[in-house]
Design a binder for these strands. Structure first.
Length: 268
DNA sequence: CGTCAGGTAGCCA
DNA sequence: TGGCTACCTGAC
């Protein structure tokens, strides 16, 4: 295995904070399916051992070349986020594939992590290509044009989201989604929300986890609860007001704040 | 065996 | 704009 020396990076917190679905742990290794291949990973201290991908891919995917300290310093001004950062230090947002990220988060609507993971694996098995590494078998995530029949999508356990997946696959393409990087945040978000099954929350997830919009602040039930508890004296607050508050408070790194708070809330 | 889920779309005041 | 509710089905 190759290795890179890292700083301010936790493989465990990064993979298990809920942003990524296609990973699993087996015999002290993490197996991540990304970029059309299986990647074997393991962290020992500051060294990240990897196999199945280039160093460049690893650095890009985990955003290792970014100035983490600067982001953290900025966010630690808030005591609640500071507490979460202490506990989950080294958690980094990833640069996922935008197309896969889009479909994954369409699947996430009114669902739960085990089911979402299953949905995505099934979609890959039905429409993707077989891939393997060191005995770990999986399937690459399919191209938009390869996701075809509604009944096959339904057989993946996607339920009422199946129609959204099919229509979104028809309506958009890889390049189209990737191209949103060039737009201002609000415009990119508006474009995404034109797609069926994509509302504010899913759009923000795609913008944050795959397109590098760190100001995106996805608000799901967990984040809503947490924000109400920490900043609104436990009062019921509209998503609109929470978003406004978050953007003013956390600014350009709101997404990082969201991910720390989300992870801390779900794990205690 | 019921309940509820990492939301969205559609309809109505 | 703001507040409902139905929507599939599998985890718990």
């Amino acid at each position: 295995m190759d290795r890179i020396k890292t700083k301010n990076f936790s493989l465990e917190h990064t993979l298990e904070c809920g942003q990524v679905f296609r990973y699993s742990k087996r015999d002290d290794f993490y197996y991540l399916v990304a970029g059309g291949r299986v990647i074997q990973l393991r962290q020992e201290g500051e060294f990240l051992y990897y196999h199945g991908a280039s160093e460049k891919f690893i650095r890009t995917y985990f955003r290792l070349d970014e100035d983490y300290e600067r982001i953290v310093k900025e966010l630690k001004k808030d005591r609640h986020v500071a507490k979460a950062i202490e506990k989950y230090s080294g958690l980094r947002l990833c640069r996922q594939d935008p197309w896969e990220c889009l479909i994954s988060y369409i699947c996430s609507a009114a669902s739960n992590i085990p089911r979402i993971k299953g949905n995505i694996e099934n979609i890959a098995r039905n429409f993707g290509k077989k891939i393997a590494l060191n005995g770990f078998e999986s399937h690459s995530f399919p191209e938009p044009a390869d996701i075809k029949e509604l009944c096959t999508i339904k057989s993946c356990g996607c339920g009422f989201r199946s129609g959204y997946i099919l229509e979104t696959a028809k309506k958009t393409g890889r390049e189209k989604i990737k191209g949103l990087r060039c737009l201002p945040y609000e415009d990119a978000k508006k474009e995404l929300m034109e797609l069926p099954g994509v509302g504010e929350k899913v759009a923000d997830c795609v913008l944050l986890f795959s397109l590098g919009f760190d100001e995106a602040f996805p608000i799901d039930v967990w984040v809503k609860r947490t924000m109400e508890k920490l900043y609104f004296r436990g009062r019921k607050t509209s998503i609109k007001d929470i978003r406004k508050f978050a953007l003013e408070k956390f600014g350009r790194y709101a997404g990082y704040a969201q991910q720390f708070l989300f992870h801390a809330e779900r794990n205690g």
